[in-house]
Design a protein around this nucleic acid. Structure first.
Ligand SMILES: [Zn+2]
Ligand SMILES: [Zn+2]
Lengths: 559, 559
DNA sequence: CTTTATTCCCATGGGAATAATC
DNA sequence: GATTATTCCCATGGGAATAAAG
């Protein structure tokens, strides 16, 4: 390899950039790029990528002596559009680079970034249905689609995902693109397993001389990608548990709103009253709201939780007491009746005449109330009110009795589980964050790492570093199914301290799976490129911001 | 108005559709639509609307005698594109309707729906930057943009927002559109205050004869619309936080048992209702049980937490609604009345004679229901059960008195509080949902209400009704600023019993602020169209699903 | 049959730039 | 200056239809 490095000078003699420099031989400009530099993916593109999202990767350039080549300028030039087999292929972009070799030699070179099939190495074709022709490309930049950018106005998104590569710490360029073509062409459980790769070429003319291929990328459009089917797991402290129902009693007619209080609830968890599943609403990992199903007969039923086929709390189910009652309609009329002064509880039969009688009584009540309470509570009645009894309200009135029925019901339902325990805390606290590290005093260590994400303006302030700090632990109720995964990720990058960054690099393959960290160039040409983690189930939690520093954007996506 | 109804027949003589029918005079087909029918917004479009989102509204047609006109067919025809002042204006769509009058006369008419300036009544022009020409319209349908639809494949989104109006319960058409033009043209705090209106016209040729204008619509593209300005935060994830109250409503008399659901609760934490500290019982770090203090007047109070002198959740307090007693009583009777077939909406005044009449009708309903729902009434036990009192239950028991529980408490919180302030609630509540109704046994009540949201396939199963069912209680940590609002909504829809749905119609302006419900046609041509709540701060929480039935889509958006 | 993992679609939420107001 | 409410943009999440695999 290095033997014929820069071999093809104008004189076709072996020479080095250094020599070329000494001789002021600028004919190296005419050399094919691949003979001058090797291109390395300092940070790989993400192993999987949602079609709608931007991604980025980082390239570095080495001369034939494995020294890093400085990048003085990097500009997006244009999209590549060529015709093969009478088909227009819009795949790739060209960039212009100004490189400065270690010896001072400067060259300007073109670089092409294209997307190829990971097996056949053929160009990927755009096959989508997009009607906007600018979107009918395999690779896109932000600026081509942005109305602000196209008007040359300031644009916050361009700061994040500029078309021009960002030169990071002089030797690295960070390229932002979006891929608008799925690996899989159809809906449905995939059979084909096409994957993409980035191909870095020196010329847009052919794919003959590819300088470098990236790792595989799985471009999809699946918001649930990588989501784990809820692990049916260990019944230990991870599994849902019911502590109480509130209320824990209702009518057989159902539709009582009940809050189930407990732990480890998550979206998708199913609630069953007896054998009847009900639709539930997750309020928090500790509360689920449901409506009771109608039940055929009064009595107590077990309230249990399940997810898919896994059942929980069979041993300690919640208990819900169904009371007998008629249809709602009748019940409501009864309530009406019961509100009347002098009500004696004798509405046993709802014959027509009874109803008529009640109705007239209702009217009496209404009128009397209107007289007594023109406004809800007249001035001067404070004392009475404090008793809880509105003035003149008959004792039998449910109002007087508070209707605070819930009270008693609740008081039973939440009994006994003072052992509040375990994982509760964990769940919430998942944000074990790095807080400590990144607040202000970090510039000193900037020599060891640099922000890969975000626009690097050279200040090395780590502002963007929080992007990758992963460790999302903000698990929201209905995302909690992702919890485990997210949590693991959280740990991966947590505790990452600037000065320790180097070994981190070996712990973590440099996928730009999201905005994550990249260690600084160590001028270590033998840097090991670890194999990437298997594509599957990559963590999706990348733009999470934790820690005290202000992230530039997309602070917390997971909510 | 009705005097010249159908005046312009071929003979230019005054005639009614009925006469036309008798004479087999189909020349009424040539009549301008506006002389045949009046168009009414049975449900208004949302008062504010994010540009990216679809909206819908419901129209009804009345003949000159104010009778509803049946819609036998409604189809989207095309988008309107016309040229004014040498500028192409793409604003509006034409629809084809088959109307059937009360007397049997059938006509086919064209209907145009366009968007106009609420002040000048001029057509809104598309001023966006969209590069896809199909999107360069003021009004859009789903199908024009959907790749599945354009391939005539099955499409779940089309089921939700079809281009063809959905005929709901024979007399109403529900139209789905998206507006792709903002009211405000620039970023920045708005100075101009342009608002839009839908204009229903009989012809695409001119805006001369507009049959009906909708209420104002504020079309924006602001995901923070209606959000409360950020309060100075008590901070982070360590301090106690309230997520929900259960129930969140009770009587001014106090002593309602309430479970406060949230995070980071600990022993000694104090709970305050308004300014009143109450005794509390720590159930878990996520639940505290309290009893409400009596309150002097109805209304909503903030529920806050404090420890020693430190106050928490001042910025996002829980909200507890104190209800006075009277409105409920009246309201309940109203609901009763409205359940009856043939109800005319005239319970405005509850005169004695009216009540007596209603009572007899109630009895009819009750009996008919008894026939339909034999189950709860096992033979022989009818008497006892009908009382609603579990056998042996003392009358004074709050449980026996029904108010059974949160359910009913919650069910009241919606209607009887027109003062439910600010409109937050109001808007949302368009979706008082019928949750209870929709699980199989509910078709019986379908005569009283129908789903406005979702694709109505005629089965009256209400499957789609859950869309609006409001009641979000899923407050995630960083969204908790919205908590209060959401939670109130949560309660709104709970416990709402099918057959009582009608009165909501009068409580709630029929804005389609989101996918919400519309009460059934009462064949009540004088149906009151309440004025809309002020546009500001409409609730954003509309697609929340609650209730036992399975929601079709967009189950829980709030996370 | 059920389960799973894709498709595209819709909806929501958050951020820089922006512009008006305070 | 700070606050606020818009703009468009990006990201994420959820659902019907889909298709394969069990
Ligand atoms: Zn831009
Ligand atoms: Zn479609």
């Amino acid at each position: 390899m290095s033997t014929n490095c820069v071999r093809k000078t104008s004189s076709s003699e072996a020479t080095s950039p250094h020599l070329a420099m000494l001789r002021n031989d600028h004919s190296v400009m005419d050399l094919p790029l691949e003979s001058l530099v090797k291109i390395h993916f300092e940070k790989q593109p993400p192993s999987n990528l949602r079609k709608s999202n931007f991604f980025h990767f980082v390239l570095s350039f080495h001369d034939c002596n494995q020294r890093l080549v400085e990048v003085e300028m990097a500009k997006f030039v244009d999209f590549i559009q060529d015709i093969r087999d009478n088909v227009v292929i819009s795949n790739g972009a060209t960039y212009k680079l100004h490189l400065r070799f270690d010896n001072g030699l400067k060259i300007e070179k073109e670089l092409c970034i294209r997307l190829v099939d990971s097996v056949s190495k053929e160009l990927i074709r755009y096959e989508g249905q997009e009607k906007n022709s600018e979107l009918r490309r395999v690779l896109l930049t932000h600026e081509i689609m942005c109305s602000r950018c196209s008007e040359k106005k300031s644009c916050g998104n361009r700061n994040e995902t500029p078309s021009d590569p960002v030169i990071v710490d002089k030797y690295f360029i960070k390229v932002f693109l979006k891929c608008n073509q799925n690996c899989l062409r159809n809906a449905g459980n995939p059979r084909e397993s096409r994957r993409f790769q980035l191909a870095i070429c020196a010329s847009s003319k052919s794919l003959e001389d590819v300088l470098s291929y990236s790792d595989n990328i799985f471009v999809h459009n699946n918001s649930k990608y990588g989501r784990q089917p809820k692990k049916q797991g260990s019944n230990d402290n991870e599994s849902p548990r019911i502590r109480a129902l509130c209320p824990d009693e209702g009518w057989v007619t159902g539709y009582t709103s009940v809050v189930i209080i407990g732990d480890n609830f998550y979206e998708g968890l199913q609630v069953a009253f007896g054998n009847v599943y009900v639709w539930s609403e997750l309020i928090s990992p500790h509360a689920i709201k449901v409506q009771t199903p109608p039940m055929q007969s009064p009595g107590t039923v077990d309230v249990t939780l399940s997810f898919k086929s896994r059942q929980y709390c069979r041993n300690k189910p919640g208990k819900f007491m169904y009371s007998a009652v008629e249809p709602t309609l009748e019940l409501r009329f009864q309530r009406l009746a019961q509100m009347m002064p002098g009500y004696t509880g004798e509405t046993d039969r709802l014959a027509k005449d009874v109803i008529a009688k009640l109705a007239s009584e209702v009217s009496e009540v209404i009128y009397s109330i209107q007289q007594k309470y023109p406004l809800p509570f007249p001035n001067g009645s404070l004392q009475q009110q404090q008793t809880g009894l509105p003035i003149g309200m008959p004792l039998a009135s449910p109002t007087a009795f508070g209707y605070n029925t819930t009270t008693s019901i609740i008081s039973q339902c939440v009994p006994n589980t003072p052992k509040m325990q375990e994982s509760d805390g964990l769940r919430n606290q998942s944000n074990y964050d790095l807080s400590g590290h990144h607040d202000g005093s970090n510039e000193v260590s900037s020599a060891f790492c640099f922000p890969v994400n975000g626009y690097s303006d050279g200040s090395n302030v780590f502002a963007s570093s929080y992007y990758g700090s992963a460790g999302s632990v903000l698990h929201t109720p209905n995302q909690s199914k992702d919890f485990t995964q997210g949590f693991n990720m959280g740990c991966d990058s947590v505790g990452y301290v600037p000065s320790l960054s180097t070994d981190f690099q070996f712990q973590n393959p440099m996928r730009s799976d999201n905005n994550s960290f990249l260690t600084l160039p160590q001028h270590n040409q033998n840097k090991i490129q670890l194999q990437n983690p298997p594509e599957g189930k990559q963590n999706r939690n990348t733009n999470i911001n934790l820690g005290p520093a202000k992230p530039k954007r997309r602070k917390i996506s997971r909510k």
